[in-house]
Design a protein around this nucleic acid. Structure first.
Lengths: 208, 208
DNA sequence: GTCTATAATGTGATAGAC
DNA sequence: GTCTATCACATTATAGAC
């Protein structure tokens, strides 16, 4: 049984490093803690990844691709803009329920390094589906012309949508204290309701 | 002229510490850097604040009160709920334009310390205007009954509002890269337009 | 109160045996 | 590939002169 659970060392290290870096950040993480979590000797970390920074970059690269839903088939499909919004929001919030710590991690570490880690930045941008923004722009313009939705700046609309999806996860430690008396299971329940609340909130706002 | 700029040492230290801690976090900050920024000797930091942790707590306490607009007179005044939303959003975004780094700092450091720093936590909760949530609840219920706004969960409404206000500041490093080709001045312009965009977005969604 | 010098510790990284 | 032992350095913190 332990046989099957055994991954090779390099993978065990990366998994442990994800946990620790995501929770403590680059500065707060300790190589010893990563080694303990991976149940290996600290020296092995350096054997496989040379330095803490390189290990961090491997983690960041592996994780940052999840910050935006990769392929947004919805935008290319035949359904109405309202259905597209519903699908996007639901998929995205599902993704965040499965990976709740990623947004705050990525945001924090992106900020931490305005211009450092050039290699990391390239990977990050490469991982992003930047075209998503252009697709949103075209889609919104088209629907305004058709008269399906009211006149609205596509960037504000898009960022409103992202904000309402991401912030409840990134800002959880804050919101849970402000509005949920720090009750964790109540907050989980709240997050599960959210997909349909957010998409209907948006649609109500823009539908003519 | 330097005469007038001189503050007493303790205050200079706190100001410098705010800058450094907000930008680097507790783990990333260096006492030496704080001393340099305050233009004093590193030993003086310990003379006034004893430890790095205590200095950090002084900063966190001084800063965390700004995370929510303190007195929300708007909620108690006579204006319509729509005007209340406009006033809240505009005041809050103005506050964030003046203190753009505070939300991410508070969220990050709150998360960093799920149960550590009990004293810090008490101060944080004390600084919060927790009643604001109850006020929002009553207000929303009242307006739904009056038929001014559609049926909506007050917590989702409130957090939608907070999300759209705060996330563009907390998530700036991310959003600016995704949607603004990392153009900083374009993003500043975007933030200035935001107050009216957000409040009209909300009102359009809930008005009957 | 403010400084210089230094202690005490934590932590990333390497050498070298197996 | 994996371990033990250790280095080299950064960083918080303190002692003590002025």
């Amino acid at each position: 049984m332990d046989e099957l659970l055994n991954k090779d060392t390099e993978e065990k290290i990366l998994d442990a490093a994800k946990n620790v870096f995501i929770n403590k950040g680059l500065d707060g993480a300790r190589m010893q803690e990563i080694a303990d979590e991976a149940k290996i000797n600290k020296s092995l970390l350096h054997y496989y990844y040379r330095t803490k920074e390189k290990l961090f970059m491997a983690v960041f690269k592996a994780v940052s691709g999840k910050i935006l839903p990769k392929s947004l088939e919805a935008l290319n499909s035949d359904i109405s803009i309202f259905e597209k919004i519903e699908v996007f929001v639901e998929n995205y919030i599902d993704l965040l329920i499965k990976n709740p710590s990623i947004p705050l991690f990525v945001i924090t570490e992106l900020k931490r390094n305005p211009n450092g880690f050039p290699a990391m930045m390239l990977d990050f941008v490469k991982n992003l589906d930047v075209n998503i923004v252009q697709k949103v722009e075209m889609e919104v313009r088209k629907e305004i012309e058709k008269g399906t939705i009211r006149e609205i700046d596509y960037r504000h609309l898009f960022i409103n949508m992202l904000s309402m999806c991401i912030f409840p996860f990134a800002g959880r430690p804050l919101i849970q204290k402000i509005a949920f008396e720090d009750n964790s299971s109540e907050y989980d329940k709240f997050l599960k309701e959210r997909a349909k609340e957010v998409s209907s909130f948006i649609i109500n706002s823009i539908k003519i």
